[in-house]
Design a protein around this nucleic acid. Structure first.
Lengths: 203, 203
DNA sequence: GCTTCGACTACACAAGCGTATAGTCTGCTG
DNA sequence: CAGCAGACTATACGCTTGTGTAGTCGAAGC
């Protein structure tokens, strides 16, 4: 990322807003605080973005653009390893992503990730012996949420793991844990059948 | 749950606070709004809880007590089916749970869920052929986060699934999706080995 | 050289916030 | 009956908030 002093004031305000929105939430962050963090007057924030709500929307749009670019890069580069997808490095914007998802502002972003996940799922399904029990988009929705959970709950995951998941050591440990979890089914075939029977009986 | 008019004013205030904190976040919710939702004056909120911060802490404590009770019931009743654990029905408090987790207030709650998950994981490990690659507490942390992701991101999961995950139909669909996902490894043994080699090489 | 326009600041304003205080009402205790 | 404690309300006080307005400054265009 560029040095702060190299960015235009508009970009500096947006970056500061994403950090403070992520830290304190939309209501918790103040225009004056954002302006100070960006090194400008509070009036300039209004001059460039019009209102606090519009500033938030600009941040959302910026995040979508950013993630889309990261997605394209990852798709072109790593060849679509989905273990990496669970460790999305949105750099300094993780907190903002979490807030946006919980506040409900990141809906288009989530939907796009589901679309990407469904694509990959369809590829895996072709090499699968038994027919899946539920529609691909449903499984894609659930596994997308699970992939995002590491980012959204990174604070708690880090505390429970004893290492910051976004540090180099934490990243390696997390990757190994994900590989282990993803390569070992938590339910045996008979357990799955029993669980399904339980659902049918329950209805 | 009891009817609102049967509860003491203190309990009504706490319930209203949990709903509004969950809906609008800590800063977004107002004491006056909470008081109105509870049908009392704003002064009474202060009389019972002292401050907004203390009210939040009382809500956190109430949630911990509530989840602990639900956990005990589920453990005693269903026999420890962990598919059910991913569909924690915290009733009308789902939104509050999500906020608390993202705001960082629900740390003890998350930790307790990890402890419970680790316990169950240890049981599964005993019937596992190969030795796990990473420590149980790490895997427990990751799978706890994944289990919670459905609740935290329920809005997005529901939208992507086309059904509200907390409705009866959505619950069944979600359960079947989880059983399918949990009984089919996303990574084959060789894929896992390749991924692990990739990590080693990368270091 | 004068005008124009956009970046930018300083200051003012009304509204809403959490908090504080004074007081009322009710039921219990001696 | 008096006294008191606790639930509860009404109202007020600073303070911060988002927003609005007036004005400065510097560069580009004619």
């Amino acid at each position: 990322m560029a040095e702060p002093e190299d960015l235009t004031a508009r970009a500096r305000i947006r970056d500061a807003a994403m950090q403070l929105f992520g830290e304190h939430g939309f209501e918790g962050a103040t225009i004056r605080g954002i302006a100070e963090a960006a090194g400008v007057s509070s009036g300039l924030v209004r001059h460039h973005f019009g209102s606090k709500q519009a500033l938030l929307e600009a941040c959302d749009a910026h995040l979508v653009k950013l993630i889309r670019r990261l997605n394209d890069e990852a798709l072109a580069g790593a060849g679509g390893n989905h273990v990496a997808a669970a460790r999305i490095a949105v750099g300094p914007y993780q907190a903002y992503l979490s807030r946006a998802l919980v506040d409900g502002g990141a809906a288009p972003l989530f939907d796009e990730m589901v679309r990407l996940g469904a694509q990959w799922l369809a590829a895996v399904d072709r090499t699968r012996p038994d027919a899946p029990d539920v529609a691909p988009e449903v499984r894609a929705a659930v596994s997308t949420a699970m992939a995002l959970s590491i980012t959204v709950l990174h604070e708690h995951v880090s505390r429970a793991m004893g290492v910051d998941v976004f540090s180099p050591e934490g990243d390696v440990l997390l990757a190994r844990a994900l590989i282990d979890l993803y390569s070992h089914p938590m339910l045996s075939a008979e357990d799955a059948r029993k669980a399904l029977d339980g659902i049918e009986r329950h209805r």
